[in-house]
Write a protein that binds this DNA or RNA. Structure first.
Lengths: 149, 149
DNA sequence: ATTCTAAATGAAAACGATTTTCAATTAGTA
DNA sequence: TACTAATTGAAAATCGTTTTCATTTAGAAT
């Protein structure tokens, strides 16, 4: 079991929720990949090893993990609901491969200056921002090149 | 009729689509506000003056306007599908009031440097980014203050 | 102005994703 | 080991969106 998985399970318990085999499996599925996953994709992965787990439980567990801030949501690429384990605990953003869904975290967005300027210019009280970069990871851009040759 | 409305109608025709009263009404509804609107919200506004227009037509018109790049989609704030008229024609982003939905455009995000750095560090080929600031407009933060006093 | 035709419309049905309901099961405390 | 509130899966309900289809209409051709 990887580190983030253990932490997540602990936090779940700390939040007053029971640690069921179903929830462990779901946390394992999300932790066990670098990709962001939709509820249906999580279900698919969980279902392989644990065919009895229902899609409803996946939805319910996602809700809890989101409430406890243990997972992140991605927005780029159309798909509305797509999740990954929160890895850096603080402020961070995601660089996403549009081909395979792989997500890389980065922590220093440097948007404070722009935020201050915008706040001044618009009289908005700004309290957050959403930033994602979209591209292709090395592996996927190589695959694309091969295809085109 | 405001400028962007006229332009949008012209572009629709230029795209080979017919300019129907329904489409005019929908374009008018989106153009007539600073807020981003969901399909349901657009329908509601259109419905007031033109009760015969169906929700389906709203969805179909949104699809066309998006295809022709005449509307922008917002992502922050949970609601998946929310639209506003494209105002700057080039690269720009949005500052969104979480209370009233008002959207302010800004054009100079200055993320090229960060993009280059990330690309170098991760070997990703980066081809886009998603950026939105979320806050409260002057009017709404004033209202909040009054409430709390 | 009138005719014509492909495009566009609204209503109803179909659809997929998500949520609710409910009776049965179970994690974790006592 | 027993207990109880929380959790589960299945089915039904619900929501947003898309498809289907017969009818209407915008805009080109006359």
């Amino acid at each position: 079991m990887i580190y983030s998985e253990k932490i997540t399970e602990q936090e779940l318990r700390r939040g007053g929720y029971k640690l069921t085999p179903q929830r462990r499996a779901i946390i394992g599925a999300i932790s066990g990949t670098q990709e962001h996953l939709t509820p249906a994709a999580i279900y698919k992965r969980v279902h392989r090893k644990h065919p009895s787990i229902g899609l409803v439980t996946v939805y319910r567990t996602i809700d809890i993990l989101a409430e406890l801030d243990l997972i992140c949501e991605t927005h780029a690429g159309g798909s509305c609901r797509s999740y990954l384990m929160r890895r850096p605990s603080g402020h961070h953003h995601h660089l996403i491969c549009s081909e395979c869904g792989r997500v890389v975290d980065f922590t220093d967005c440097g948007l404070e200056k722009l935020e201050r300027r915008l706040s001044k210019e618009t009289s908005f009280k700004i309290n957050g921002h959403l930033l994602e970069f979209i591209g292709q990871c090395l592996e996927c851009s190589r695959k694309q090149k091969e295809k085109n040759s």
